[in-house]
């Protein structure tokens, strides 16, 4: 790990100013991605501004939404009763991610900013990585790709955004509050990430010195239910091969309204609007479920190692839709 200066401010403004003033500075929160990347030599900041003592921890429950401090840990958010009742799939996604130890460290803000797990990105001895070093190529495309993305990618980069909780969060259209050198702004998660096929080296719209201070999560309306299905090789402690976050409101045996997002497949957490549109106002129909999934995956870019994900994602979504509509049948 490269030597670095370490600051630990106690006010948001100080933290933002400290990073903004130094092009080689960066924020440090839970560390579960960053410390790992620093050890790998992939990320070499000269100055770390530790934000873990900033007053950005805690959950404010309002009637229509949760205001979640960016430093709230995954375990803390999962333990919030309102999350269990009104955002079931957020809780499920949180508890299916990583391990308890990591969830005690990882912050919700940091989770959204986690870097790809791609082993070519994370190994600086591999020179071809457009995400790490623009226009150098993509080693993953030609080598071993299994934990990689098939949506929002092309031959320049197939990096996966591996977050679980970001999948339901994008389904409910959560937004982040950002403090930065130019002041405060709100960014909907639907506009937060940048797809790899839109520029492999840019992961999100944040600028240098921008700090997520809060995540605002709309509560699902009364009468909705939601669930998160994660498919992976191991039974626990593994990133998703595919996952599906579904929230819906049944209207008799019809799907009244529905929100869908997929994980494990996209260079960004993947909102499945095509599927939502195909299913909204329709009867429960397994064939249509599969067609909806196929519509989402129609634009997939695959390499030999990831080809199976197209079918698996369709099946994952279908299974989750079946599970969630079963009670209505």
């Amino acid at each position: 790990m490269r030597a670095f200066l370490y600051d630990r401010p106690t006010a948001v403004g100080e933290a933002v100013a400290a990073v903004a003033a130094d092009p080689q500075a960066a924020f440090l929160a839970g560390g579960t991605t960053q410390v790992d990347l620093m050890k790998d030599g992939v990320w070499t900041p000269d100055r770390l501004v530790d934000i873990t003592r900033l007053p950005l921890r805690g959950i404010l429950v309002e009637s229509q939404q949760l205001k979640v401090g960016a430093l709230t840990t995954m375990e803390q958010l999962a333990a919030e009763p309102v999350v269990e009742q009104r955002l079931t799939f957020v809780r499920e996604a949180l508890l299916l991610g990583a391990s308890v130890q990591l969830r005690n460290m990882a912050t919700i803000g940091g989770n959204l900013l986690q870097r790809t797990r791609c082993r070519y990105f994370r190994d600086p001895t591999v020179s071809a990585c457009n995400r790490r070093s623009p226009d150098s190529g993509c080693a993953a495309v030609d080598n071993v790709a299994r934990m990689h993305a098939v949506l929002g990618v092309d031959e320049r980069c197939i990096a996966l955004h591996a977050s679980d909780v970001a999948v339901p969060l994008i389904a409910v259209e959560a937004s982040v509050l950002v403090d930065g050198p130019s002041g405060q702004r709100r960014i909907p998660l639907t506009e937060f990430w940048v797809r790899a096929d839109e520029g492999p080296s840019i992961e999100n719209v944040l600028g240098h010195g921008d700090l997520i201070t809060e995540i605002d999560i709309p509560l699902l309306p009364q009468g909705w239910r939601s669930g998160y299905l994660k498919v992976r090789d191991r039974a626990s402690y593994e990133f998703a091969l595919t996952s599906a976050a579904v929230a819906l409101q049944m209207d008799g045996d019809m799907i009244g309204d529905i929100r869908i997002a997929l994980g494990g497949v996209g260079s960004v957490p993947w909102r499945a609007r095509e599927a939502e549109e195909m299913l909204r106002g329709t009867h429960v129909d397994p064939v249509r479920f599969e067609q909806a999934g196929r519509a989402v995956m129609a634009s997939a870019f695959t390499v030999p190692g990831t080809a199976f994900k197209v079918d698996l994602a369709v099946r994952t979504l279908s299974r989750q839709l079946l599970t969630m509509t079963e009670a209505s049948r």
Partner: peptide
Amino acid sequence: QGACGACTVHVDGQRVLSCLMLAAQ
């Protein structure tokens, strides 16, 4: 690398991975 749990300790009573936490923290 935060992937095995052998370094688990308690910080303020919660289990964490000491390999991914800076001593300064």
